[in-house]
């Protein structure tokens, strides 16, 4: 599974099924501060990802 972090760095994770909130937890990211897409579609934190999914984590808390 491909994880695209808010800073655009790419992390590869095993394809075992895991919830989005578990992924965020592992990365120490607060779910209130991001939205997450799975293969380009927005998903809630209790959605499950796995296999070849592409997960993109987008930081929403911006200054300016």
């Amino acid at each position: 599974m491909k994880i695209i972090l808010p800073c655009s760095t790419i992390n590869m994770m095993s394809g075992d099924p895991v919830s989005i909130s578990q992924i965020l937890d592992q990365l120490c990211i607060n779910p209130s501060e991001v939205i997450v897409s799975r293969n380009g579609k927005l998903v809630p934190e209790d959605a499950v990802a796995g296999g070849d999914d592409e997960i993109r984590i987008i930081r929403i808390a911006h200054g300016g």
């Binding site: 209130s32 939205i35 897409s37 927005l42 987008i58 929403i60 808390a61 911006h62 200054g63 300016g64």
Partner: peptide, 27 residues
């Protein structure tokens, strides 16, 4: 909430992917 606003824009392809203000770190 901020997260609802971000999601509201994202699902309409209106979410602006923009850089962060460089002065934010002082706030």
């Amino acid at each position: 909430a901020e997260k609802e606003i971000a999601a509201y824009l994202f699902v309409q392809d209106l979410f602006p992917f923009l850089p962060e203000c460089p002065y934010t770190r002082y706030a």
